[in-house]
Write a protein that binds this DNA or RNA. Structure first.
Length: 471
RNA sequence: GGCGCUGUAGCCAAGUGGUUUAAGGCGAAGGUCUGCAAAACCUUUAUUCGUGGGUCCGAAUCCCACCGGCGCCUCCA
C-alpha cells in the first residue's frame, strides 16, 4: 500500500488515484528570469523521484510543470537588459531545460506557459467574477477572499489572524488586504493582453489554476511544490479553482523541505545560493541526488561542500560495483548464476518507497544490496552471467530508474583511444616489472598514474584502472 | 503574535509504542586479501535518542513542561 503525507490533512494517507493506475500530477515550475539554484533543484529532484516511483509501480503518469513566463521579476530583468521579456524568458527556459537534464530529472509531459494560456486565464477570472468571488477596480481584478468558504484550509490559517498579521502592504483598491490580484492593469511599456477589464496581464496565482485545469482536469491527484508555496500560492490556487469549478481541486498536496545553508533557507533574496549549473560543474548529478535522497523530502537539508563530498564518496561504492558488473558480463558464461535473494531486496525497496517515498530507507536497501553482492562476488569462484545480469537489473530499476543515483549508460573509460592505449601500455610495463619483482618501478608507475588521475587496481587475473580526480 | 517543522553516534541521517539490546552513508580504529597498495569483505565506533516529569507490562516513539534551531504569515522550491 502506497502512502503519502498530505499537507491538506496533515496525515499520511493511502494513495488512491481518481482513475485506477493513472496519476495526474502537477508541480509548480520556475519563474524563468534567472538560473535556478540547487535548492530549487532539490524540489525538482524530489518530484522527479516521486514521479519515477509511480512509474516503477506501473502507473501511467501525466506530469505537468508550468513555466511562469510573465511577472514582475521578468519585466524588471528585461528592463535592466533593455530587451523584450520573451528574450529573457526564452534564455532561461533553455537554461532550465539544460540544467534539469544534467540533474537527470525526467522531462515533464507538458510545460505549459502562462503567456500561452491567457484565454483560459481570462475565462476563469470571468467565471469567478460572475460568481461574486472577484471584483474589478479600475481594471485591476481581485479575488474576494472572504467570499470563499474554506480559505486557509491548506495552510492552517484563518482570515482573522491573517488580517491582524499586518505584514501585507496596504492597497486602497482592495476590500481586504488578503485579496490578491487575478488580473493586473497594464502599465505603459509592459507586456499586455486584451481582456474584458481592459488591457493587462494575469496575476501570479491564476495561471496554475487555469493551466492545471486545462491539462489535468478540474480535479486531479497530486499537486507538489516547495514548502514556501503553501501560503499564499497554493491556498490561492484552491480558492480560484474550487471557487470557479465547484469541485475539489487536488486530492493530495505534497510539499518539499528547503535546502539550507548554515541552517538558513537558501534563497535568491538572501543571496546565499549556488546555481544548480555551477554545482553540476563540480559534482556529478548522481552525487547531488544521493545527497538529496539520504534525507526525507519533506524536511530541511543542510547543504555544504562537506556533505557533497561524503555523498560523492558513497557514490564510489556504487560505481565500483557497476564497473565490476560491466567487466564480468563481458567474460562470464550465460545462463548460470549463483543463488541470491533478489526478491527480498525488491520487497524492502518497495516497502521503503511505499511509505511516503522514504528514500533514505530505500537508499539503505540499495547499499545493503551492494554489500551482499560484493560479498557474493568475493566468495564465489564464478558467480555467473545470470547473477550479474540480475544484479544489474535490480540496480537499473531501483538505484538508476527510481532514485537516479546510478547511470549504467555512461561509458566508463570514455577517454580518447590514444590515452587508453597509453594507459594500457603502462599497465603492461608494470605487470612485467612486478613479475621481475621490480617493485620500485611498479610502484613508480602506479604513483605517477595516480597523480595524473588514473587509479590502478590489481586483482589476481588482471589490473584495471579508473579515472579519479587528479591531485 | 498565529500556524507549521525540527533536536538521534565525530558529521549527515532513518526509525514515531514491543520483530530496534536504534538502519544506511561519510569519517575513525583494527583485521582478511596484497610484494606493498587500492577495491572488497569482517570487526569496533549511541546501554542511548535536547532536558525534566508523567502514562503504560513496555517509549527515541504517546502526554505535559522547559530549553534550543528553522520556516511560513510579503516575492520565494
Amino acid at each position: 500500500m502506497l502512502t503519502v503525507y498530505n499537507t491538506l490533512t496533515k496525515r499520511k494517507e493511502e494513495f488512491k488515484p481518481i482513475v485506477p493506475s493513472n496519476v495526474k500530477m502537477y508541480m509548480c515550475g520556475p519563474t524563468v528570469y534567472n538560473y535556478f539554484h540547487i535548492g530549487n533543484g532539490r524540489s525538482f529532484v524530489s518530484a522527479d523521484i516521486i514521479r519515477r516511483y509511480f512509474e516503477y509501480k506501473g502507473y501511467n503518469v501525466k506530469f505537468v510543470m508550468n513555466l511562469t513566463d510573465i511577472d514582475d521579476k521578468i519585466i524588471k530583468k528585461a528592463g535592466e537588459e533593455k530587451v523584450e521579456t520573451n528574450k529573457v524568458t526564452q534564455k532561461y527556459i533553455d537554461a532550465f531545460m539544460e540544467d534539469i537534464a544534467k540533474l537527470k530529472v525526467k522531462k515533464a509531459d507538458i510545460y505549459p506557459k502562462a503567456t500561452e494560456h491567457i484565454e483560459e486565464i481570462i475565462k476563469m477570472i470571468k467565471t469567478l467574477e460572475e460568481k461574486g468571488l472577484a471584483y474589478n477596480v479600475n481594471g485591476n481584478v481581485f479575488y474576494n477572499v472572504k467570499m470563499f468558504n474554506g480559505y486557509g484550509k491548506l495552510s492552517g490559517k484563518n482570515i482573522e489572524d491573517l488580517e491582524s498579521g499586518a505584514r501585507i502592504e496596504i492597497n486602497e483598491e482592495k476590500n481586504s488586504p488578503l485579496d490578491f490580484a487575478l488580473w493586473k492593469k497594464a502599465k505603459e511599456g509592459e507586456p499586455q493582453w486584451e481582456s474584458p477589464w481592459g488591457n493587462g496581464r494575469p496575476g501570479w496565482h491564476i495561471e496554475c489554476s487555469a493551466m492545471s485545469c486545462k491539462h489535468l482536469g478540474e480535479t486531479f491527484d497530486i499537486h507538489a511544490g516547495g514548502n514556501d508555496l503553501i501560503f499564499p500560492h497554493h491556498e490561492n490556487e484552491i480558492a480560484q479553482s474550487e471557487g470557479a469549478n465547484d469541485k475539489p481541486f487536488v486530492n493530495y498536496w505534497l510539499h518539499f523541505g528547503f535546502l539550507n545553508i548554515n541552517d538558513e533557507k537558501m534563497s535568491k533574496s538572501l543571496g546565499n545560493f549556488f546555481t544548480a549549473r555551477d554545482i553540476l560543474k563540480v559534482y556529478p548529478a548522481e552525487a547531488i541526488r544521493l545527497l538529496f535522497t539520504q534525507t526525507n523530502y519533506g524536511g530541511p537539508l543542510n547543504f555544504s561542500e562537506e556533505l557533497l563530498q561524503s555523498a560523492k564518496k558513497g557514490l564510489e561504492k556504487l560505481d565500483n560495483l557497476k564497473s565490476k558488473i560491466d567487466e564480468a558480463m563481458k567474460v562470464e558464461d550465460s545462463n548460470q548464476g549463483v543463488e541470491f535473494g533478489f526478491d527480498k531486496f525488491y520487497a524492502a525497496f518497495e516497502k521503503a518507497m511505499d511509505d511516503d517515498f522514504n528514500t533514505p530507507q530505500a537508499v539503505a536497501v540499495v547499499f545493503d544490496f551492494v554489500r551482499e553482492c560484493n560479498k557474493t562476488i568475493a566468495e564465489t569462484e564464478k558467480p555467473g552471467y545470470k547473477f550479474y545480469h540480475l544484479v544489474k537489473e535490480f540496480l537499473t530499476r531501483t538505484a538508476e530508474g527510481v532514485l537516479g543515483i546510478m547511470d549504467f549508460n555512461t561509458k566508463e573509460s570514455s577517454g580518447a583511444s590514444l590515452e587508453k592505449d597509453l594507459i594500457e601500455f603502462l599497465i603492461t610495463l608494470r605487470l612485467d616489472a612486478k613479475k621481475n619483482k621490480n617493485y620500485a618501478l611498479a610502484d613508480k608507475i602506479r604513483n605517477e598514474l595516480n597523480a595524473l588521475g588514473v587509479e590502478l587496481q590489481d586483482s589476481k587475473e588482471k589490473t584495471t584502472y579508473k579515472k579519479i580526480e587528479a591531485n
